[in-house]
Amino acid sequence: MRRFALPIAMTALLGTLANAGAALADAPKVVVSIKPIHSLVASVMQGVGEPALLVRGGASPHTYTLKPSDAKALSTADLVVWVGPEMESFLEKPLSSNAAKATVVTLMTVPGMTLLDAREGGAWEAHDHGHEHSHDHGKKDAHAHGHDDDHDHDEVNTHLWLDPVNARRIVTATAEALAAKDAVNAEAYRTNAERALQSIDALDAELKATLAPVAAKPFVVFHDAYQYYEARYNLSAVGSITVNPDRRPSAKRLSAIRAKIAGLDASCVFAEPQFEPALVRTVTEGTKAKTGVLDPEGADLAEGVALYPALMRNLAASLRGCLGG
């Protein structure tokens, strides 16, 4: 009987691998727009399948152009997860044409998602986090991309994943959508989602402790991408260099931001890896403010499950390092 031990073990192993392969083959084809959302979706799909990502590497959704391979992925997708046209304007038309057969989860309209209005102008009052409201399916049309940079944009802040409470909702909405598409693996999605929710809660508590010592210190950001993060951790951003990251700010605006930095004795001005660092040097010239880098989308991080917690920790480390030094 001993001579059968190895074949039986191998048979069991091959059976396990075959089942895993079947699960991957049968999993819904999921396409996700940007890296932070992809990370959260991947956490729900662990062990079942891998979502495809459109905006890869350090590319910005504000300036992204859809590639032929992206169009092909959309054409075969069962499920597409994106923030909404206010964030990924490049996806709005392709979702109607290329992904007409897919179920589309638009996070801006997920029930219970907390949304914040974009702040007006470039110099804000301390702790002015806009108007918080919860959207069901009544989002407003907000395509103000052609406005002059110094004008107000009547739109919602789209960087909603930077609030861990919203990240929880993204995970839950993804698990529900996947379970509806794939009943065979529904339990796996729900188990993964519960594990992800516990990790997000632990991350949230960690970040609160990390950022508490610098909550009162004023700082300026490149553009208004961090409002959810600021509101969650009671941070004191006082302005942004630009309203629209696609457009260079006017000399008048840069002068106003420099005056704000000097008047409030802002501790730090933060650049972003995708955009022009020279603007940060311009507004800090002649002030005591230090400079740092914040990355709201994980441009320099490898895509996957680990990206979201790494992104959130990196923001905390940059803020603590520059404001607390």
Rank of each mutant, 00 (worst) to 15 (best):
A251M: 15
P218T: 02
A173D: 12
D152I: 09
D201T: 15
N185P: 09
E230I: 00
E206P: 02
R232V: 09
T210F: 00
P245L: 06
A266P: 13
F219Q: 07
K181D: 05
D265P: 06
A193Q: 11
E272F: 02
A173S: 14
A186H: 03
R195H: 12
F219E: 07
N244T: 12
K252E: 11
A209W: 00
V243G: 14
P213E: 05
G263R: 01
T174L: 02
C268W: 09
E155S: 12
V238Y: 00
Q198S: 14
P218Q: 08
A173Q: 04
N185M: 02
T174K: 01
I241M: 09
P213M: 09
N166L: 06
K217T: 13
A216Q: 10
L235F: 02
A202W: 00
G263M: 05
E187A: 13
A209P: 04
A262K: 07
A216E: 10
Y226H: 09
V171F: 00
A188R: 08
A212G: 10
R258G: 14
F222Y: 13
R258K: 15
E187W: 01
S240R: 01
Q198N: 12
P273V: 05
I257R: 02
V269R: 00
N166H: 04
Q227L: 09
L207G: 02
D246C: 12
Y233W: 04
L211A: 06
V171K: 00
A216W: 00
A167V: 08
R168C: 08
E155T: 14
S267V: 14
A225M: 08
L203V: 11
A212P: 03
D265G: 15
S255E: 14
A271D: 07
L162N: 11
L211M: 08
V214H: 02
I170G: 01
A173L: 06
T172P: 02
A256D: 14
V221Q: 11
A251V: 13
D265N: 10
D204R: 06
A193E: 07
V184C: 01
